[in-house]
Design a protein around this nucleic acid. Structure first.
Length: 567
RNA sequence: CGGGGCGUGGCUCAGCUUGGUAGAGCACCUGGCUUGGGACCAGGGGGUCGCAGGUUCGAAUCCUGCCGCUCCGACCA
């Protein structure tokens, strides 16, 4: 490709709308343009990157026995109604009607679609296991699309679905995909970490997220310093803390005016936060919920929601709280309230003579003893892990990091095969539900994640494997015939030998071309100027570390290929 | 859903307070000059000032409504 022909409109200034670096750089380097909130046109450079990522994904899927197919983007409402998700999915689903007023949606995911395909054609255990995948646009009407391609409303995703005879088969499919994903992100040249993830209402042992590590990541993860435990903070389990035994003292009300925060209560009563019980009121579609954690702990809403098995969970508003407890938030507690579900973190049940809100504005109870003074409906782990908390496996302190969720593997078990009646006959002629898994790679998000992780003040630094082109050839002066002849020769030879090269033949000054090269992020920049030309040496600069090599024209192709392999 | 900010040429923004018929830099086109890190000179094209109403002799500017973009928040007691 010649730069004079390449449609890569670069911008000198950063458009105001872009907040994160990947978004800014993709706009500036001429990779994407916005069509609407959360929807983008992929310009040629971006499309090349996406195709390279897709190729890697395809190869690894196929290597595990996956078969590619393509399903409709527009899906009929019926199958979603059948699975029960038409009503559950809510505003996040793009819905539309055809001329006959029939309901459809733009597919946010394809479990229903694939399951109805498979159920109509798979009858026997002999046809299983099956792994089917597609790479396609997905649509989710996000509340707040942001960060460019990181959280768009239209995005490219690879989704594979596995169908097995039993859970053992599912485990095998799952570990194949886990392995494939490890290979995919490694091949893409990304620093990543598979972490245990929340599997929501489906439960079971089964979900991992593949996190591309980046400070701008939306997800928080913890990993152990000693063992190999790593998890999304949403998932990371916590063992209850045992407090030393104390003689239970009689419950007592104390006036604690104006102490709406744990901090203020502690200061007033001269106690530490681990002697207090923090009570949070949540609104759900069922009843109001009081969640209890130790004062210095935080509630993990995902865990809480899983325990409650509810669809909606949000902190209750002040009015509801007052109507129920008679106190303003800050003074509510678990004692004496009616018509609520009390969920206590397991650590709370080990506390003695602690402090909790009295459900009376400006009053707290002291000497609260869980079990004696109140009995929660649910006792569970609902606590959010934090930096240097003990690892649930080995007890060593954990570290926290941020990541971009680029892939997720998930055991579905029979959730969809049951709802959509996907069955087969086993060896004994017995009808059984297929055991399913689903496995997604956010292709467009992976591109954005790669930039988040690989950039500097000059622009993008593409990992070689997914770079739109491997190298750019920059003749310093296009009017210099000798330079251009050499440039053309190098250009031809590189492309012939499988190195994707761009020839920057634009009649621009060298500085302009250098700036664009750095911005676009070609791994290698081959500069042809009088200096190198006179000495018969070809100058190659590595984008990543600024290293400069000089190669003789006779063997430069092999030198460049060797160099690319090392990067 | 709540609140803030913004909408003026392809991009970044000024002009708006105090109404008088639209500007700068970058980008683009032509010519010249230049050519190792976003040059320079001269000339030029391009904007119904987000949309719709209203006030006024006159509206980018004031008023009302709508749309779009963007950021923050949606209460850790």
């Amino acid at each position: 490709m010649r730069a004079s022909q390449l449609y890569a409109p670069t911008l000198r200034e950063t458009p105001a709308e872009a907040e994160v670096i990947s978004h800014q750089l993709m706009l500036r380097a001429g990779f994407i343009r916005k069509a609407a909130g959360g929807m983008y046109t992929y310009l040629p450079l971006a499309w090349r990157v996406l195709r390279k990522i897709e190729t890697i994904v395809r190869e690894e899927m196929d290597a595990k026995g996956g078969q590619e197919l393509a399903m409709p983007v527009i899906q009929p409402a019926e199958i979603w109604q059948e699975s029960g998700r038409w009503d559950v999915y809510g505003d996040e689903m793009f819905r539309l009607k055809d001329r006959h007023n029939r309901n459809f949606c733009l597919g946010p995911t394809h479990e229903e679609m694939i399951t109805t395909v498979v159920r109509s054609d798979v009858r026997s255990y002999r046809q299983l296991p099956l792994m089917l995948y597609q790479i396609q646009n997905k649509y989710r009407d996000e509340i707040r699309p942001r960060f460019g391609l990181m959280r768009g409303r239209e995005f490219i995703m690879k989704d594979l679905y596995s169908f097995d005879r039993d859970e053992q088969g599912l485990d095998e499919s799952y570990s194949k995909m886990y392995d494939a994903y490890t290979k995919i992100f490694t091949r893409c040249g990304l620093e990543f970490r598979p972490v245990e993830a929340d599997s929501g209402a489906i439960g079971g042992s089964g979900s991992h997220e593949f996190m591309v590590l980046a400070d701008s990541g939306e997800a928080a993860i913890v990993y152990c310093q000693k063992c190999n435990y790593a998890a999304n903070v949403e998932k990371a389990e916590m063992h209850p803390i045992v407090a030393p035994d104390e003689e239970p003292l009689p419950l007592e009300e104390r006036s604690t005016p104006g102490t709406k925060s744990i901090e203020a209560v502690c200061k007033l009563l001269k106690i530490s936060a681990d002697k207090t019980i923090k009570t949070l009121a949540y609104q759900t579609e069922k009843k109001l919920v009081l969640a209890l954690v130790r004062g210095d702990h935080e509630v993990n809403e995902i865990k809480l929601q899983n325990e409650l098995n509810c669809i909606n969970l949000a902190l209750a508003n002040e009015i509801d709280v007052q109507n129920l407890t008679g106190a303003v938030p800050g003074f509510i507690g678990p004692i004496g309230v009616k018509d609520v579900i009390i969920v206590a973190d397991a650590t709370v049940m080990n506390m003695h003579n602690s402090v909790a809100g009295a459900n009376k504005t400006d009053y707290h109870y002291i000497n609260v003893n869980p079990g004696r003074d109140f009995k929660p409906a649910i006792v569970a782990d609902i606590r959010m892990i934090k930096e240097s908390d003990p690892c649930p496996h080995c007890g060593a302190p954990v570290n926290t990091a941020r990541g971009i969720e680029a892939g997720q593997v998930f055991k579905l078990y029979t959730k969809y095969s049951k709802a959509l009646k996907a069955t087969f006959l086993d060896e004994n002629g017995k009808e059984k539900l297929m055991v399913m898994g689903c496995y997604g790679v956010g292709v467009s998000r992976t591109m954005a994640a790669a930039i988040e992780q690989n950039n500097d003040e000059h622009g993008i630094i593409w990992p070689v494997a997914i770079a739109p082109y491997h190298a750019v050839i920059v003749p310093v002066n296009v009017k210099d015939i000798a330079q251009m002849e050499l440039a053309e020769k190098i250009y031809t030879e590189l492309n012939k030998s499988g190195v994707d090269a761009v020839l920057d033949d634009r009649p621009e000054r060298a500085g302009v071309k250098f700036k664009d090269a750095d911005l676009i992020g070609y791994p290698l920049k081959i500069t042809l100027g009088p200096k190198a030309l006179n000495e018969n040496l070809i100058e190659v600069k590595v984008r990543k570390n600024g290293e400069i090599f000089f190669f003789a024209p006779e063997n430069f192709v092999t030198e460049i290929k060797t160099l690319l392999k090392k990067l």
